[in-house]
Write a protein that binds this DNA or RNA. Structure first.
Lengths: 100, 100
DNA sequence: CCGTATCCGGGGCGATACTG
DNA sequence: CAGTATCGCCCCGGATACGG
């Protein structure tokens, strides 16, 4: 499970949800606040763990596409369930995330 | 989603899966490697985020029980899906978790 | 039994600058 | 466009000791 730890892992996975294929710059744009360093780092870890596939197009300008592996696709039901969960959040229970 | 971040959060949630009610010492025993500090810290954060309920029995010796709130119970499908996912892990893809 | 209080090291994470 | 390379803070997490 350690595999999913990391500040941006889940966010990135959500973006690749449902067999989507995204370029580096697209992921960057869709993930406000992330730096290139963190983006590549988290992607590389996901790749090393066999969740994300990285395809390089040898050309100028460079082009790299990221997508979920089969094993990564298998995460979709879980991600789905998580979305359902956060959307079911009762009111009055906002951000207690602060004081910890 | 930050709510689920933390070295032991998911592990603890798995233990409270399905409406189970556990005492502090029970959680400690079922979670090898955790220290009392981390145990109480992660529990407190989960409590502050409305996922876990903490019930204190005013008596000697002390007794404290932890369980999932309704909003916490709603996580079960997601946890279930995660279990299914890890169990579907293909062979030959063991621990790349090391070199990151 | 159920916590609190401290100390401490490693690394996660961000900001910034540079490259093919 | 898609990355490396550095620097540094902060805080997460482990170890240990103590208290009601």
């Amino acid at each position: 499970m350690r595999v999913l730890e990391g500040r941006w892992k889940l966010v990135l996975l959500f973006h690749l949800f449902g067999g989507k294929v995204l370029r580096f710059s697209e992921l960057e744009r869709q993930t406000p606040g992330i730096s290139q360093k963190m983006l590549i780092q988290q992607l590389r870890q996901l790749e090393a763990d066999g969740i994300v596939r990285r395809v390089v197009y040898q050309q100028i300008p460079p082009k790299v596409e990221y997508s979920l592996t089969e094993w990564g696709q298998a995460l979709c039901p879980a991600l789905d369930a998580l979305v359902t969960w956060v959307e079911s959040k009762p009111a009055g229970l906002e951000n207690a995330t602060d004081d910890n």
